[in-house]
Design a protein around this nucleic acid. Structure first.
Lengths: 210, 210
DNA sequence: GTCTATATGCGGATAGAC
DNA sequence: GTCTATCCGCATATAGAC
């Protein structure tokens, strides 16, 4: 996966710049400068800017899909808490993808479709997760409520970090707050949590606030 | 507000193109072509592309703020249902703003800050709305739950239409579905709705599904 | 107010030496 | 693999005639 060290430096520099300044605002020249190589050398390793974005997107896909795969092991609230943290951290690491999805899908239609496919997978994983929680008695919900809860979770994990930049007091392109994101998501689950698990959920939420 | 007819045609053409193709992807030449005028004439009416975006953003602000102002009249579930529809339709009419917020804030920092300020106002209006619902006995929630519910509503109204493009089966840049958006938002409120209002809420939701 | 023609700059991508 | 130098095209914005 590392290929050559230079190749990897380019990907790392690109990721950092895209996350900080946005996909559209970062030129290949700037990437080359950040990676401390020449523009020509950059094009030796990646023929086009698109191919850089594709590689980053692939890594993002793989990371999320691996999280989706291990979603079946969730049995209790603290499993959910951990899973949410991991997911928000993964998305935060590639935050430019969802933040600049409009531009990304318009510029690279193939990636737009893959993003849709990824969302479909996330939805399936979230549904499996919610059904597992219901089966374990952690939450009490009708099948329709379970379905909607899964949708809420996917919507939130996908868009929350982008939204966070819109609430004043946050630094626009700077680091996000995965803890707050997980806290918010647990709030969505909260109305459906059974009385046995409620104490632990309240404990987790209060611990975050403190 | 209309100024000259040409000036207004430019704004209308810009809005349509931005909504369809995205802010970054639309050039001033293309706007001029859509408005059936010359590029030079466009710059007679608007010195810069930025000023076009600023005018559209101002209209968007005014529309949302007027909705925020009339939010105090909400007393029952069907008031909420109507208010959500109006809000989603307003946002849908200027959907490029939230969809391309990353690029917009990076390119025009002043507008990014105004978007933050607008979000703060939306949050206040949503809190007032939720408190009114609680005072009327439509919902039953602790102050903290009321607070979080307001946040959920603002998050959803802000980001849902952008998220919708990510779920497969939708046309990326095409028309959205405000009905589905309102349905989803009511689901968020649902756990807190008191038994007296629940029947009507279920009626509204089932009517949408049918 | 509206047009045509053009200046200016930048970003993506290439050529060819080392 | 890496560099410097350069081409090409597009987008914003301007100049000046009508």
């Amino acid at each position: 996966m590392a290929g050559s060290p230079t190749r990897d430096r380019i990907l790392l520099a690109s990721l950092a710049l895209f996350n900080t300044h946005g996909l559209a605002a970062v030129s290949t020249h700037r990437i080359a400068a950040e990676a401390e190589i020449s523009p020509g050398n950059l094009h030796y390793h990646f023929k086009t800017k698109q191919s850089i974005v594709e590689w980053l997107f692939r890594r993002f896909e793989e990371r999320l899909m691996s999280l989706n795969g291990s979603a079946s092991g969730i049995r209790a609230i603290d499993d959910l808490w951990l899973a949410l943290h991991l997911r928000f951290e993964a998305i935060d690491g590639y935050r430019f993808i969802y933040r600049d999805m409009g531009h990304l899908a318009a510029e690279y239609p193939a990636l737009g479709e893959r993003a849709q496919a990824l969302t479909a997978q996330n939805l399936l994983a979230a549904q499996a997760l919610c059904e597992a929680l219901a089966a374990q008695g952690v939450i009490e919900a009708t099948p329709e409520q379970t379905q909607m809860l899964a949708l809420q979770i996917v919507f939130t994990t996908t868009c929350w970090l982008s939204f966070e930049r819109l609430v004043p007091g946050r630094h626009e392109m700077a680091q996000a707050d995965p803890g707050m994101a997980a806290y918010y998501t647990l709030t969505l689950v909260s109305p459906y949590v059974s009385s046995e698990s409620r104490a632990y959920l309240d404990y987790l939420r209060s611990k975050y606030l403190g």
